[in-house]
Every structure is written in structure tokens, then in C-alpha cells.
């Protein structure tokens, strides 16, 4: 068994959909990945295969019309809150170049399911959540592992998650108002950096 908790930050690039002015960064700001969990096994010394699950949390994106609503309160006591969340879940393989050495580089590829969600809410009067779901076509990652002691490793990693949202769901005041496929999907990427622990490497 191989347990891989990670933490880091991710930055949005590309387009959420093919609609005009629908950049991923317009919907979602950079996000903090408080934790990613991977669980799997080594099928050979160099190759790990397992599942991953991570959640990113952050603020609304740079879209001016949304920001105008989000900033409707004042700085001291702001009754309007905006936030964004992203989730990725899937399976991946990682290849370690020198698994028996105290320091080893690795590369990974994964595929899975991706969700991006943005919410605006005031104090109980109005809430709107826009959620896009789709596929994570390629999760490309790489990093270094330093074996600190037996059964425990630590190191930096970088990750590019390339995806495409295909469905869009809206909730207003906690009632679903639409759930439709996206007519003109586009490709987006989340680029991340962080620290990765490996337990039972």
C-alpha cells in the first residue's frame, strides 16, 4: 500500500467553455489544495498505480460583473461572500526513476473526473451556485522524493491538469434551475505546485 498526501496551490488557465469571455480564471481564482490523497500500490519497484482525490478552495475569479456583486458589501462587514471549489478524482500511474535511492525523480500520468464550482451568497437571501463537470483528460505530474527515513518520503512536485467541462448545473436558492450539456466545450488547465509526502514508499 502506498499513501500519498499532498498539499499545494493551483492556478487556472485556458477557457471554462467556448463562450465569449469565459476564461477559467474569470470563474475561479487561484486555489489552495489543502490536501490531496492518493491510495494505491506499486506493481513493480518503479511503477505505482493508484487513485487520487483532491479539493481546491479559493475565491471568485476575475470576472468584473461577478466581482461587482461580490464586492457589494463593504470591507469591514461584508455580507456578500463569493467562493470557488474544484475537485478532481481519478486514477494515475507514477514512474520512479531510482526507487531504491534516497532521492528519486518521478513522472506521473492520470485521467479522471473534474468539477469546478463558484458560489455567490448573501446572508440567507440569495444564493447561486454554478457547477461545471467534465473529464480530466491528462493529469501530468512530476517531482522529487527524498527518503527521510524508512517508510516515509517528502518532496516537491509540479502538476498540470488538462480538462474539459462538458456539463453545467445551476442552483439558485438551493433549487436546481438548469442542468445542461455545454454546447461549445473548451480545454482548460490547472497548474499546480506543492509538497508531497509518501508513506510506505
Amino acid at each position: 500500500m502506498h499513501f500519498v498526501p499532498m498539499t499545494g496551490v493551483i492556478f487556472p488557465f485556458g477557457s471554462a467553455t467556448g463562450a465569449r469571455d469565459d476564461a477559467l480564471s474569470a470563474r475561479y481564482a487561484w486555489q489552495w489544495l489543502p490536501l490531496e490523497v492518493g491510495l494505491g500500490a506499486k506493481v513493480m519497484d518503479e511503477l505505482y498505480i493508484g487513485g487520487y482525490f483532491n479539493v481546491g478552495v479559493g475565491l471568485e475569479g476575475s470576472d468584473l460583473a461577478t466581482e461587482a456583486h461580490c464586492e457589494a458589501g463593504n470591507d469591514a462587514v461584508d455580507d456578500v461572500s463569493c467562493s470557488s471549489v474544484s475537485v478532481r478524482v481519478g486514477i494515475e500511474g507514477r514512474y520512479s526513476f531510482t526507487p531504491a535511492e534516497p532521492m528519486s525523480g518521478w513522472l506521473g500520468y492520470g485521467i479522471g473526473y473534474t468539477v469546478g464550482s463558484e458560489t455567490i451568497s448573501d446572508v440567507g437571501r440569495y444564493t447561486e451556485t454554478s457547477t461545471a463537470t467534465g473529464i480530466e483528460m491528462a493529469r501530468l505530474s512530476g517531482g522529487l522524493d527524498f527518503r527521510l527515513k524508512r517508510g516515509f518520503g517528502l518532496g516537491p512536485y509540479a502538476m498540470v491538469s488538462i480538462g474539459r467541462y462538458t456539463r453545467q448545473r445551476t442552483e439558485i436558492r438551493n433549487v436546481e434551475t438548469a442542468s445542461t450539456s455545454i454546447d461549445n466545450p473548451a480545454t482548460h488547465a490547472w497548474v499546480g505546485l506543492g509538497l508531497r509526502l509518501v508513506i510506505f514508499p
Binding site: A16, R27, A65, Y126, I172, T177
Partner: peptide
């Protein structure tokens, strides 16, 4: 209906006008 605030949000609502006619309204921001 509300006009949605967020990019990508949508509201779809169907109204029965009479026995012969229905109207489907779709709102984005």
C-alpha cells in the same frame, strides 16, 4: 425569474400558456 449573476449559470423554466401552447424560457446573465 431571476437573471443569474454568475458566468455559466442558467435558468430554464417551462410555462403552459394554454392547452395548445407551451413557452420555454432560458435565462443566462
Amino acid at each position: 425569474n431571476y437573471v443569474p449573476v454568475l458566468q455559466g449559470s442558467q435558468i430554464q423554466k417551462r410555462y403552459t400558456v394554454d392547452d395548445a401552447l407551451e413557452a420555454l424560457v432560458t435565462l443566462t446573465r
